[in-house]
Design a protein around this nucleic acid. Structure first.
Lengths: 356, 356
DNA sequence: CTGAAAGCGCTTACAG
DNA sequence: CTGAAAGCGCTTACAG
């Protein structure tokens, strides 16, 4: 006696499993491609084609398939698609922080670029930690992302090492990487230099620098800033650095430290706007007139900088564009189009306002 | 003549495909479970077990498997796991905004809770749009998330409708949903009431309200605030509302509108801290003493509120906890454990500072 | 503690 | 324009 193999699983209408706690294979009886095919009286292949590109299929088939999809509430299973096609339509994005508005806007740029192309984002927060970054890289590799977009918390070598064998393309954001790598950003060094030059140009005698986190990009800004001061014949030695995460609160604290170390300090470059806002608040508390007694410069041009009182002089960074262009570059690579350049420098703008 | 089917694909060492542009099935020849099994001289099942729970396997097998994994650089393919197990280990999180720091911190709470349990997040930004929310719900359903965490941009009914048939559990964040739904949040209405009562209590004669975005939660705060004013015998009619996205800049603008409409206004409840910061800056520009001439209250207690000058009176909201507890509730549901309560009220704190 | 079989729901690569 | 076959890389459900 032969067992009869049921080619088509029998679905009894209204056969709801009352015991929802039990983990059945198809919770809710979600419709599959096969269900749609049967309903539309075509093969699964035709449905598969119609779903990807309607022009691949005859109008009549297309109509029936669309009707079936609607009736069954069919939603494709991406895991199956990923497994079969070896394309996940997932892009992994690694940023050092999300409490920093800069990276939130970068993500918006990425999202706006890849969303219309049908990609989903896997967003990882490395917290500026190389170890965490390595972990995330591995974890995300398991999802077989089609590409990586990363703002490195440290050297790019470890990243390369990790991804090299996987063959997944990667574009660096903010770091203008070396040849042989893809990158979109701007020169942190030049930006820092522009600030140093501005401060020197407006007559600062004793400028100071306050910085938190001390990530690579901050240190590059510092290098440019120091060079500008030296070029202007000024001492670049006055600085308060801490590895603590940046915050407005910390800006207050660091400003106090700076002034206690150098009461004659007459200008301060804060490594970002949050710090600058804290410094400004602290000055208001201490009755220090800005910019008359102390000039303050921030970095990034976050939304509040323009409307603070006094408004804050800062460097406007193209963070949204960095995300968008890095994503575009990655998409080109994924589509097999060679981007014109392997590194795109988006530049920056020194925005001179009231505070310096 | 019979074709011989190769049971084991032959892999020739050093056989690198020079044409990396060609999209082969296995870019980089990523190792599979089968590769590991062969290397460790066990079956794929044993490897599968060892990977999930080492105690399921003999120590000797375990050792060989671990060695093989290391040597081959094996990284599991989650798409395959998802397809076979019907569990994606993905949690979809929908928030109305990422430029609002509140939701960034909520996401941090979610991440900190689900990360250790091996879940990845799919983060969707609805931009406060119900239409976008519906789109994202569908898009994410394709990824077969094990659960949803959402802060609704509108009514919860549409969400239910969408997810009902899918059987994917959902926990609401911030909205304390109706019975039969899972939710973690706090009473926006009571929080608004606390602010109204505080302003009345400190002698406000002509309080005003400024608000942006006008999402459901903002309107609930407004309702509580107005009731408190009425209870104190004050007029609740003075308000400037706009659907524009919230920003510090907008806070400046709305404050000016408020004062031009009611020059005798002596207290203002800003629906969030960004608006309050803008209002404060504008007062500084207009030489309006805060709180003497005008009291300012914000909402959320973002990091800058405590250190502004003057420091800003506001309501501290448990946003990190909302994310964490909502995630915990969801994880319990996924593990088949019934949470004690279906709605968790985390409360809030009125933080009285200098500005009001 | 271990393994052979079957299948998850799609797409690729052919063939017509 | 359409379809039958095979397979993507895992896990489930059995069986030992």
């Amino acid at each position: 006696m032969t067992k009869i193999k049921r080619e088509v699983p029998v679905r009894i209408a209204g056969e709801d499993n009352p015991n929802t706690a039990v983990n059945r294979r198809r919770p809710g009886g979600r419709a599959t491609l096969e269900d749609v095919a049967r309903h539309a009286e075509v093969s699964t292949m035709t449905v598969s084609r119609a779903l990807r590109d309607t022009s691949l299929v005859s109008p009549s088939a297309r109509e029936r398939i669309e009707a079936a999809v609607r009736e069954l509430g069919y939603i494709p299973n991406r895991a199956a698609r990923t497994l079969a096609s070896a394309r996940s339509k997932l892009i992994a994005v690694l940023v050092p922080s999300l409490s920093n508005a800069v990276f939130v806007e970068t993500l918006a740029g990425v999202q706006d670029c890849v969303g219309p192309a049908g990609y989903q984002l896997l967003i990882g927060n490395t917290g500026y930690s190389p170890a965490r970054q390595a972990e995330l890289l591995s974890a995300y590799l398991a999802h077989a992302p089609d590409g990586f977009l990363v703002t490195g918390s440290d050297d790019t070598k470890a990243i390369r090492e990790h991804l090299k064998t996987s063959g997944v393309p990667l574009v660096h954001m903010f770091d203008l990487a070396a040849a042989g790598e893809w990158s979109v950003g701007f020169s942190q060094r030049k930006a820092g230099h522009a600030i140093g030059a501005h401060l020197a140009g407006r007559g600062a005698r004793r400028p100071g620098f306050i910085a938190a986190q001390l990530d690579p990009r901050t240190m590059q800004r510092r290098a440019g800033y120091r060079r500008a001061l030296r070029e202007a014949g000024l001492d670049a030695g006055l600085e308060i650095l801490t590895k603590q995460p940046s915050s407005v609160d910390l800006g207050c604290t660091l400003l106090r430290s700076l002034l206690s170390e150098a009461p004659d300090c007459d200008a301060v470059f804060c490594c970002n706007d949050d710090l600058a806002l804290g410094a400004l608040f602290e000055c208001q508390r201490l009755k220090i007139a800005v910019p008359r007694d102390l000039a303050i410069v921030g970095f990034n041009d976050l939304p509040f900088a323009a409307v603070a009182s006094p408004s804050i002089t800062t460097v406007a960074t193209p963070r949204y564009a960095v995300g968008f262009e890095a994503a575009r570059m990655l998409l080109q690579i994924l589509d097999g189009i060679a981007p014109e350049r392997n590194r795109i420098d988006l530049g920056f703008d020194l925005v001179v306002r009231e505070s310096a």
